[in-house]
Nucleic acid binder design. Structure first.
Lengths: 257, 257
DNA sequence: GCTATTCTTTGATCTGGATCAAGGCTCCGT
DNA sequence: ACGGAGCCTTGATCCAGATCAAAGAATAGC
């Protein structure tokens, strides 16, 4: 997250072959030729600034987006116009897959900081999936992971007391940073307390109080956006997650070959 | 739901061509030949009795299941062994897609009443998806719908007061029954109050009180498992759903060609 | 058909976390 | 450097809905 504020324009123009993330967003073991075919359908878009939208609810669905740097929140809007965050996204993740069925975006995606993305026109991606071995399976797997992840989130919202919710959120972030080669215990939150509260179905004030409480208990140090986890095992115990979150697990496996 | 208790053995042995549900579970517009190829990979399993498991968390993932008759609940188990229901499933739905990524089931599926299912070995389904036009897209669409549906559920759990939760649940059921050609206002709940409470993240007592309250308000009549919706619009207003739930919407579209 | 068990309803109480209120910090633009 | 607009924190109060308790249906097992 720290690194993501620096946007290297050369890097933006670079190809999958050189992208340190392609193991996360695309299947491993792709032939060189396949990687090139994939590369050819990808539009490398200019950076999206903090607060800008990658796509909005209701827009026609054309492409999915692979996040290369920075972080993004996705959310729905209910009938009162209230925003409900469904997730935060880190580099290597594919966004927009939930719009396949309706051909219209059902969530909005908004940059939490400057991000760079690869745009993958979905129809062409589907065509390629019929041809490149493993690509179809990879897409299905990614969606399946997302489903699993939502199951966990759902269980948290349905049952967990507030301490567990925040602990669970932090542990999950920790895992995801680790999977990306960043520190698992020392990171910046790119989202506001408000956004965290929204995701976890609680009030901002409660988030704030919990951060203070966790700090007093020696579980972590927090200053503004910066979090340093002091006792990850204790935090994990607090989190008591439904099942190990596979999203991070499989990302790790992929990372390690 | 009412009909589902009668299990016709002839029907169980019948093929996709004759199945009234194939429009729901499989893509429409399949060539006769394609439908036969699909049909050939399907195992028609004997009925699963109420309370029996279709699959359990941790079991190796081999197949997805198309529900033909009856209803099923799927749930995760948290570390205290507590069951968290993630959904109820009606005829025409495909179950088990969340296990693709990990090759292991991450939810358990348990019959709420006697059900019949078609088992589709997933590897063979994947192979077919590379060959039959539209099948790959259909699978992706189904998963995408599921994701959307979970987003809605998530929004309900995060924000909605109890009245909205139950109203939302009932409206959704109503829609899904309608999409299947059953009455949208008159149906039986195959799940217990406990299961409903669990899904919606509330206490059984609250569910019970709300049913009484809704009845007093003239929104519905409820007796034991049987629900008769009297004022669907009012219920929908109460529900105030995040976005129209696409799962039922697209099923309707498919039904009507 | 009878008893045990599980499911459902209703009432009374209690509490976790929301809401309300207010002051301090940051970061932004000028 | 300064002023203003959001953020974030902390404290005080309140209430929606959980929990506890108990009795009445329904179903299953014998």
């Amino acid at each position: 997250m720290t690194k993501s504020r620096v946007v290297n324009l050369d890097e933006l123009r670079s190809h999958c072959q050189k992208c340190s993330l392609y193991r996360l967003c695309m299947p491993m073991g792709l032939e060189q030729g396949d990687l090139e075919r994939l590369d050819r359908i990808i539009h490398r878009r200019r950076p999206v600034e903090k607060g800008e939208y990658l796509y909005r609810i209701g827009e026609p669905f054309q492409s999915v987006y692979a996040l290369r740097a920075g972080s993004i929140k996705t959310f729905t809007i209910n009938q009162e116009g209230h925003e409900q965050i469904v997730g935060f996204h880190l580099p290597g993740e594919l966004l927009g897959l939930d719009a396949i069925a309706g051909k219209v975006h059902v969530t909005s995606a908004r940059a939490l900081e400057t991000v760079s993305v690869c745009e993958l026109p979905f129809e062409r991606l589907e065509e390629l999936s019929l041809q490149i071995p493993g690509l179809q399976h990879h897409l299905l797997s990614l969606m399946s992971e997302e489903l699993q992840h939502e199951h966990c989130h759902l269980a948290v919202l349905a049952r967990a007391p507030v301490e567990s919710r925040l602990a669970s959120f932090l542990c999950q972030l920790s895992d995801r940073f680790r999977a990306r080669g960043y520190s698992a215990t020392d990171f910046n939150l790119s989202m506001s307390r408000n956004d965290i509260a929204n995701l976890l179905g609680m009030a901002v004030e409660t988030i704030s109080r919990l951060f203070s409480q966790f700090q007093e208990q020696g579980l972590l140090k927090v200053e503004r956006k910066h979090v340093q986890i002091r006792d990850l095992p204790a935090l994990q115990t607090l989190a008591n997650r439904c099942t190990t979150d596979v999203r991070t697990e499989s990302a790790l496996n992929r990372q390690e070959h």
